[in-house]
Design a protein around this nucleic acid. Sequence first.
DNA 1: AACACCGTCAACCGCGTAGCT
DNA 2: GAGCTACGCGGTTGACGGTGT
Length: 276
Amino acid sequence: MGRQPCCDKLGVKKGPWTAEEDKKLINFILTNGQCCWRAVPKLAGLRRCGKSCRLRWTNYLRPDLKRGLLTEAEEQLVIDLHARLGNRSPSFISFVMWSKIAARLPGRTDNEIKNHWNTHIKKKLLKMGIDPVTHEPLHKETKAEDNLPPDSSNQQKAESSDGTNNNVEDNSSSSPTENSSSTDDSLLLENICNDDCLLNSLWIDEPPLIDAPWNISNPPVEENINETGLPVAWDHQDNCSWLLDCQDFGIHDFGIDSFSDFELNTLNNLEVGGRH
DNA sequence: AACACCGTCAACCGCGTAGCT
DNA sequence: GAGCTACGCGGTTGACGGTGT
């Protein structure tokens, strides 16, 4: 089937978002909720494609987003989840479900976690002598691959692990593979750190435990709070004081009736500072 | 001071697929 | 069941800021 572009290429703006655009998008979503992204740009008066609007919203403008570096605990969780989810694709090409991982980390986006993985965690693991893809010791990699096809190498290597890497990866060293039996999966599940229902919730179509994207009451971590009590990420907007209004909303569903006229007016009356 | 290099991350691209007709 | 539309996802790119020379 032919695939149409998500938007008219002509007249569609690309590149960094301006504060003005952000304001328009937030204003629109606060008013109308999230629906039909394709129509959003037109209705919001933006010269962007719907996809771009969705991305901007989910990765940057959502009021519940924490920003800043991942905490140690978050990082460990990402590593742990990556070890378990990374190779579950039927084709067993490395397939990381960043969105699933992100669902376990309140206030974090898949894009953010993906970036953090590629820029920080990957290097960290490599430095520790661990293959960030297989979560196996690097020195085993070449040995095992001599005798085994790539698809079946993980289990063998895991079993032959000498346990020299006493890090979080150790208990996740048996990345699932195509040949994983249900027994292997059971073993994996047993090893999951303090939430056995984790993978079930990820792999069965169950709502994620963290399923309240608008749970503004979820406090940002301390180190991400600035002197005004706001997430520091909001400082990144040159003028994002107007986002304050979002925090007070009962916007679990972001319905139009979730905030007051005053708040809407505040949004409308904000001075738009230049961004970037 | 000027330039090159590197790291980070926001944004884009294209594919897969759910859902509708 | 086929065709189409829209959305969500992971991979990738490129702009920008920081650091080193």
